[in-house]
Write a protein that binds this DNA or RNA. Structure first.
Lengths: 150, 150
DNA sequence: TATTGTTATACTCTATAACTATA
DNA sequence: TATAGTTATAGAGTATAACAATA
């Protein structure tokens, strides 16, 4: 298939993301996590401490959006939320041992599902796909937005 | 980077889709189209006639969701919606010349934006990415959903 | 006065249920 | 009775604005 006959990227990617999210949901259910809860755990596993607003922004959510999520995760002992002694307005967020364990277990199951999907690809395509994804997913969003023509 | 250190697919793909959609919005605006309107035109450009319910399903929308969209596109002369003579309950949908032109013009501008993005990739990655995307975006959704472990 | 986290409110988007007309 | 399309309603999800505590 010639390159210029391909469908729009968003038209191919959006249904794929929908399918992946749908496939993750039952897996996360088994681990007692919502999509936002899992997002929060993943972000904290990577960068232990932050302000709530920064955490929200890093996962593409509104700061008011994740408050209930944090309440729930804290209640279940998966993360700690303690006032920063040097600025008592801010809440320092960190995973508990349980939080790290639950996050890792969920991610392992998700990885299994993903590998089954990726096994459909020829090795070269798989390599190119993952490599491209690493590049594209880290392009600053502002640089993707098209320059206005006016 | 080792393969098993990669982030979850959805965690990489979702922000990319968000960025692509955000980049498409101003382009579609210039052509007087919404995302759903563009989706409808694209689907009809590929498969000229269908029932509204089938069209809705093919673009991942509820059948009630697209009625207003069809009203608008028809009013502006971009598509025709005529009762099927053989079953007057159904509405046969087809693009007008204007509809085909507008859809093509919008897609050309979107393609330009996408090419600028893809130019960041090494040739091999780009090839693998697009090839993989063609495969993955056509995997039946049911086959992605993970088998239950119970 | 500005900022962090929070709560309450309003808004957008989508799905559900009820209706009309055809079959 | 069943189905296509439509309309009206309700629900989920999200953002906006106002508030309390701290700086």
């Amino acid at each position: 298939m010639a390159d210029d006959e391909r469908a729009d990227l968003a038209a191919m990617l959006a249904p794929l993301v929908r399918a992946l999210v749908a496939a993750e949901r039952p897996i996360l259910d088994e681990h007692g996590l919502t999509m936002w809860g899992y997002s929060v755990l993943l972000a904290l596993a990577e960068q232990p401490t932050r302000t709530q607003a920064a955490l929200a922004e890093s996962i593409g959510a509104d700061k008011t959006r994740i408050i209930g999520v944090l309440d729930d995760l804290q209640e279940r002992g998966l993360l700690q939320r303690t006032p920063d002694p040097s600025d008592r307005r801010a809440r320092v967020l960190s995973l508990t041992e349980d939080g790290r364990r639950v996050c890792g277990a969920a991610q392992a199951d998700i990885r299994t599902m993903e590998e089954a999907l990726l096994s459909r690809l020829p090795a070269a395509d798989r390599r190119g796909f993952l490599s491209a994804l690493r590049v594209l997913s880290t392009v600053p969003r502002g640089e993707i937005v098209s320059p206005r023509v006016h």
